[in-house]
């Protein structure tokens, strides 16, 4: 039985037995190369649920605002986000039923558009690992694995770290090479080059806050950008304001970011948001040996004191 069928079965069971009020999953509304989140409350609707490499949203994002009991379809990275949310008191473990999906990586649409020289994809059919895309003037067969999102290429937690039901067998760990290749390049460049890089990529930002809203961990009731007493950051798209927004957001994810890539995928203007968050995640891992969202009741690395902490900077 394929995973999608299993998923639907499990969802039907949960709804029929009234174990959950809603199943949050993905459905296909016909748009090529993408799925859309869906909220299923009626067992008869479970066949809307799909599971494919276009299921790119981090649905943990929808859990924080809910008061009811929800089942959520979650990939490895999504389960890590859920773990962080539980650790940060944002969801109660008993209120969430995790349908864990071992995930071989999701497709980055933008990579396909790029490959097709910004070709307008009007139809896409997935069969096994081949996507047949059609536009007005072209047809092409593309391999899923050639268009995986960057965060999936360096994924170390493809299987759920926490779940109530796991749909399908564990996947073997990915042979990750050069996880920090881009980061290292940036680290090795001069400060002028780095500044120019950040200026260039962040100047594309239009402050629509899609990155913030797509991030499961940006759950603050009022974001620092929205505060005006004191006003932490200007509201314009001046590069100084935009940089403050992105750097502060990255700081706020320190030791928490699970590198699901939702921020970067949601950006309408292709800002390299992960460059900041991934760099911080790298630092946290190197300094504190910590990766976010792997264990319940784990404290964030910057929230407790450990005698073994590297403390040269204090001396």
């Amino acid at each position: 039985m394929d995973l999608q069928t299993k998923l639907r079965q499990e969802a039907r069971k949960l709804l029929e037995e009234k174990l959950v009020d809603v199943v949050i999953g993905y459905e296909d509304e016909g748009a090529p190369l993408r799925t859309t989140p869906c909220f299923i409350t009626d067992p008869q609707d479970v066949d809307r649920l799909v599971w494919n490499p276009f299921c790119d949203h981090n649905l943990a994002r929808y859990l924080t605002a809910r008061k009811d009991k929800a089942a959520v379809v979650a990939k490895g990275c999504d389960t890590r986000a859920i773990v962080v949310l539980i650790n940060e008191n944002q969801i109660e473990r008993k209120n969430v039923n995790i349908l864990g999906m071992p995930c071989g990586g999701i497709v980055d649409r933008k990579k396909i558009y790029n490959h097709l020289k910004n070709g307008d994809v009007r139809e896409a059919v997935l069969k096994d690992k081949v996507i047949t895309v059609k536009g007005l003037e072209f047809t092409a067969d593309l391999m899923v694995d050639d268009f995986l999102a960057d965060c999936c290429l360096s994924c170390r937690h493809r299987n759920p770290v926490l779940c109530d039901v796991q749909i399908g067998e564990n996947l073997p760990p990915l042979d990750v090479k050069d996880e920090y290749k881009k980061i290292k390049q940036l680290e090795e460049s001069t400060s002028e080059e780095r500044w120019e890089y950040f200026r260039k990529t962040l100047s594309k930002c239009i402050r629509c806050y899609a990155c913030r809203e797509a991030c499961p961990l940006c759950y603050c009731q009022q974001c620092f950008t929205d505060q005006n007493f004191p006003a932490w950051v200007g509201k314009t798209t001046d590069i100084s304001d935009t940089i403050v927004f992105h750097i502060m957001r990255a700081f706020h994810t320190t030791g928490r970011c699970v590198d699901c890539g939702a921020c970067e995928r949601s950006c309408p203007n292709n800002v390299d948001i992960r460059m900041l968050t991934k760099k911080i995640a790298k630092d946290v891992k190197e300094l504190f040996g910590d990766e976010a969202g792997l264990q319940l009741e784990e404290k964030a690395p910057l929230s407790f004191y450990n005698e073994d902490d590297p403390q040269d900077f204090i001396k």
Binding site: T36, P37, C38, F39, R61, Y62, I206, R207, C208, Y209, A210, R212, E213, A214, N228, K235, S266, P268
Partner: peptide, 26 residues
């Protein structure tokens, strides 16, 4: 009640809309 559920509440649709024109003054 149902339609908004998946909306993230970001500003993409309004910022990229050629006709949306709401503004704030600071």
């Amino acid at each position: 009640d149902g339609i908004h559920q998946k909306c993230l509440g970001c500003g993409i649709c309004t910022y990229l809309c050629p006709t949306c024109h709401c503004f704030d003054i600071v």
